[in-house]
């Protein structure tokens, strides 16, 4: 038990109607020290999104334990210590950008948690001009920036991001990665980030957790020893060597999976 890390031990989950011999999550062990940025990568169906939802307290599990800084996921949510960014921006279309960002401050006031100044947040994601606009007036990338600013709004101890950039074009995606890194470095939040992109994982993370599918297991944890704050070395030889390493690991994960039909090794 530690206040300074997320500890996942022997986590096993089978969805109702699923094959119990091939659980969605099979005895997952995971350690994330406080303040680290950890990416989960793997073929579709490896359970990375399920793992994030379990850590978010959105889903139950069959066996094992999840402790986040010595609390349960539900206790973390009750204290408004978790920020969640889903794949779609999930903004409320009837509220303008500013009201969307302050939404976390207006629900669950019992938690008594302070919140970030919304105007400062908007500035940090470069949207200070769009405060009074409504989601339907924004581009996809801007909407996702609002979603990220909203998640940082409660100064969460843990930020969970489930493929937040996967619906965006490559240029927007890269710009948003730098926005996210800027915010993360300022706020020193612990991040669990689900992605399909090797480049994205290398750019953002301290550690990359490679998962294999059917059953969903942790295949390998690869440390990213690039200096912070990240810059050119991401695209330099060291960054590329790391990308190759992650791709090789993904290939291994893919081959060890029971039904490796949905990931083409790059």
């Amino acid at each position: 038990m530690s206040r300074e890390r997320i500890e996942v031990r022997g986590l096993t989950k089978t969805y109702e109607g699923g094959d119990p011999r091939r659980p969605t999550l099979d005895r997952i062990d995971l350690d994330v020290p406080r303040g680290h940025f950890v990416s989960l990568i793997g073929p579709s169906g490896c359970g990375k999104s399920t793992l994030v939802r379990v850590v978010a307290g959105l889903e139950d599990y069959d066996e094992g334990s999840v402790r986040i800084f010595d609390s349960t996921p539900r206790q973390m949510c009750a204290a408004k210590a978790v920020g969640f960014v889903p794949q779609s921006p999930a903004l409320l279309p009837w509220l303008n950008v500013r009201r969307n960002i302050t939404l976390p401050a207006r629900v669950n006031r019992r938690a008594g948690k302070g919140s970030e100044n919304p105007d400062a947040l908007l500035r940090m994601v470069g949207l200070d001009d769009a405060a009074r606009k409504y989601p339907h007036e924004l581009s996809g990338g801007m909407r996702q920036r609002v979603a990220i600013a909203r998640a940082f709004g409660t100064r969460p101890d843990l930020l969970l991001m489930d493929e937040p950039f996967s619906a965006l074009d490559e240029f927007t995606r890269e710009a948003l990665q730098w926005h996210l890194l800027g915010l993360w470095e300022r706020m020193s939040t612990t991040v669990l980030f689900v992605t399909h992109s090797v480049r994205e994982a290398v750019t953002l993370s301290d550690e990359i957790v490679v998962m294999s599918a059917r059953p969903g297991r942790v295949h390998e944890v690869i440390p990213v020893d690039l200096p912070r704050p990240r810059g050119d070395e991401v695209t330099g030889p060291r960054g590329r060597a790391l990308e190759d390493r992650v791709r090789a690991s993904l290939r291994g994960a893919w081959e060890s999976g029971a039904a490796p039909d949905d990931l083409i090794p790059l």
Partner: peptide, 15 residues
């Protein structure tokens, strides 16, 4: 109500 929005509300422990 869309699933992702409800997830955001639930992680905030909204009543």
């Amino acid at each position: 109500v869309s699933g992702p929005v409800l997830h955001v509300f639930r992680t905030l422990h909204a009543s």
